[in-house]
Structures are given as structure tokens and as C-alpha cells.
């Protein structure tokens, strides 16, 4: 049997609740939203709705999943985005840096739950972001250890922030949702859920602490006055401004330079062009692998599979040495001209 007790947060119940889940495609935010909505609407007989906003049907791009419900059965009619959430759940810590817009509408009524190993007091939010409670749960770490879905662990942590929904109703929905999984899958998700339930840390946000300035990467701001006509993009290859580190699931390839003989096989298979090379007549085939640009690495491990020696191995993301983070595909490209 799954355990559906709650952590001992004493939150009062609200009449209208709006939840926004911010995730990367493939992390299961859409399903998590659906589960919450089913428990609220079919279980508790609240009014409400759920929908998700995403791009094409792929992994790795930002997904927003919204749940609204009203415990006093106010009609819920709108399917517009939730701009001022009562609960904001961030499925990947890295999104706080790469997608600062996820903090839109966070106010004194908002609780923020983040998938992170950090303690809540360690987070720095963009200027002006003052939530009510901040909580963290090391969901990626738990997922790597248990094989549980990330969303199950996040749900385990989420239920303590929505006291309006009883554990029984949420439990029923989750169990029926996982009924099609294999016995191993069920067991892994059950452990994941319980760990999520018990592993989160919470604190009241201090409104006066030092805040980070918004992200320093400024993306182009085009409107009808300055956008090139016809929707043309006139800056070749500006996708290099993007950062895909949030697509990784806690692991990454690590390069052992002592083993590498610069054969170039990794460059043939890397879908994300992370390997940085320069010509060097002194190295075996006339070219030298400088390193991996982790900004673009989504952690697929194809390079590890193809490496004919053991120069590339699977490691945890935190094992990436700081020195490796200076390897830049763009800088190398600039040096060619």
C-alpha cells in the first residue's frame, strides 16, 4: 500500500487555488497536473480545470502545466495562463537561471517548491520575487537512486502544499494512474512518492534578503517596430545563446583527457554539437579535442557508447569539474576567424 500521510505543514485551506508547474518536456508535469486536477475535481467535487502549454511533441522544451480549482464551486471557465499562482512548482532547479520568466506573478500568497538539493534559504530569486514559503526536494537525486518518475516524487512533495485535497483522493488517482506500470515500476514510483513526501525542506521566505538581478543573458526583444519583416531571422546561429542543461537528468559524460586519443568519433554522433575541436598538427590525426561545452549537452550518452577507449564515462552532473565549464564552442568558433 502506498503511504498517503502528509508532512506536518499547517496551511489553512483556501477557496480558490491556482497551481503552475514549470518543467522541461519529458519530466511528467502534464501528468502531474492531470493527477492533481482529477483528485480535486472528481475526488473532492471542486470545480476546476487543467491544461498544459507546450510546443511540439518532444522532450527537452519548457512545459507549463496549470491547475485551477475552487473549493466553493465558483465556475472555472477560463483556460488562459495562470499569471499569479498560489503554488509554483519548478521541476528543474536550472530553469531558475535559464528561464527566469517562470517567476512571473509570484507574490506573497505564492508557495514555491523547487526540485533541488539545496536548502531553501540558499535560493536566490530574481529581484521583486517574494514568495510565502520556499521549499526544496531533491527529486532528481531520488529519481536517479530509485528509478521513480520525477513527477511522482514531485507529487509526493506537492501534496503538503494543497491541504484542500485529501490524501485519500490523491492516493486513489495516483494508484489508478500507475496501475498499468510493471510491478518494478510501481514499486519504484511508490518509493519515489514516499521519499518526495518526507524529503522536502521548507521555510518562510525573508522578504528583505539580497536578490539576484534577473538573468544576464538578454534575449532579443522584437515587436512590430523593430522585428525584421516577414519573420526573417538575420542572425545566423544565434541558437548558441540557448542553454539546454535542464534537459539532463542528473548525469553527464565526463572526459578523461589521459585516455583520449582524439579520434573524432564523439563528434560524429553528438546530436548537440557539444564537442569542441581545433586543428593541431601535433596531435594524432591533426586535430585536438579541447573538451565538452556542457551548455548544450542534454546527457544522451551516445558519445560514451561510441568512444573506442574509456575517455568518456558517465558521471553525475556535480562531478563536472569547474575547469570544464570554461570550454566554449562559441569562443572556439570565434577564434577560427
Amino acid at each position: 500500500m502506498w503511504f498517503f500521510g502528509r508532512n506536518k505543514l499547517q496551511f489553512s485551506k483556501r477557496e480558490n487555488v491556482a497551481i503552475r508547474l514549470e518543467a522541461i518536456g519529458g519530466q511528467g508535469a502534464n501528468s502531474a497536473g492531470k493527477i492533481i486536477a482529477e483528485a480535486a475535481i472528481l475526488g473532492e467535487h471542486f470545480t476546476g480545470n487543467h491544461f498544459s502549454s507546450f510546443g511540439s511533441e518532444k522532450r527537452g522544451t519548457p512545459v507549463k502545466s496549470y491547475v485551477r480549482f475552487s473549493t466553493v464551486r465558483k465556475p472555472i471557465r477560463t483556460a488562459s495562463a495562470i499569471r499569479t499562482p498560489d503554488l509554483l512548482v519548478i521541476f528543474h532547479e536550472f530553469m531558475m537561471e535559464s528561464h527566469p520568466e517562470i517567476f512571473e506573478g509570484v507574490g506573497p500568497h505564492t508557495d514555491v517548491l523547487i526540485n533541488s538539493k539545496k536548502n531553501p534559504h540558499e535560493f536566490q530569486f530574481p529581484k521583486g520575487v517574494h514568495p510565502r514559503y520556499v521549499a526544496s526536494v531533491p527529486a532528481t537525486e531520488i529519481a536517479v537512486k530509485t528509478g521513480s518518475g520525477l513527477n511522482t516524487i514531485m507529487l509526493g512533495a506537492i501534496i503538503s502544499f494543497i491541504p484542500e485535497i485529501t490524501s485519500e483522493h490523491l492516493g486513489q488517482v495516483i494508484q489508478s494512474f500507475f496501475s498499468k506500470l510493471s510491478p518494478e515500476g510501481k514499486a519504484a514510483n511508490q518509493i519515489g512518492f514516499e521519499k518526495g513526501l518526507h524529503s522536502f525542506k521548507v521555510k518562510t521566505a525573508k522578504p528583505d534578503q539580497d536578490r539576484l538581478e534577473p538573468s544576464s543573458v538578454t534575449f532579443p526583444h522584437f515587436g512590430y517596430v523593430n522585428a525584421p519583416i516577414g519573420g526573417v531571422i538575420t542572425t545566423p546561429g544565434n541558437s548558441v545563446l540557448k542553454n539546454h542543461e535542464a534537459s539532463r537528468k542528473g548525469t553527464a559524460p565526463l572526459l578523461n583527457r589521459n585516455e583520449c586519443f582524439h579520434c573524432g568519433q564523439c563528434d560524429l554522433v553528438c546530436p548537440d554539437f557539444c564537442f569542441v575541436w581545433r586543428k593541431n598538427p601535433d596531435v594524432g590525426f591533426g586535430a585536438e579535442l579541447l573538451g565538452i561545452d556542457y551548455q548544450y549537452c542534454k546527457g544522451c550518452q551516445k558519445c560514451i557508447e561510441v568512444c573506442p577507449v574509456s575517455a568518456l564515462s558517465l558521471g553525475k552532473e556535480e562531478e563536472i569539474p569547474q575547469s570544464e565549464k570554461n570550454i566554449s564552442w562559441v569562443k572556439n568558433e570565434k577564434s577560427k576567424n
Binding site: 527537452g60 522544451t61 596531435v283 579535442l289 551516445k302
Partner: peptide, 28 residues
Amino acid sequence: IPEAALLATKSKRIAPGHGACPGCGIFS
């Protein structure tokens, strides 16, 4: 054609930062 290593130094027509799924075979 030269060795794969030398081909790896050739400037790519597609830049990194595209949003394909992890492990997508299209871009390689």
C-alpha cells in the same frame, strides 16, 4: 575523406543550441 578527427574541426552548418530531444539522430 580525412579522418573523423579532422572532419570534426570543420565548421558546422548547424550551430549548437537547437532544441532536439536528447539522443536525436537527426542532427548527427
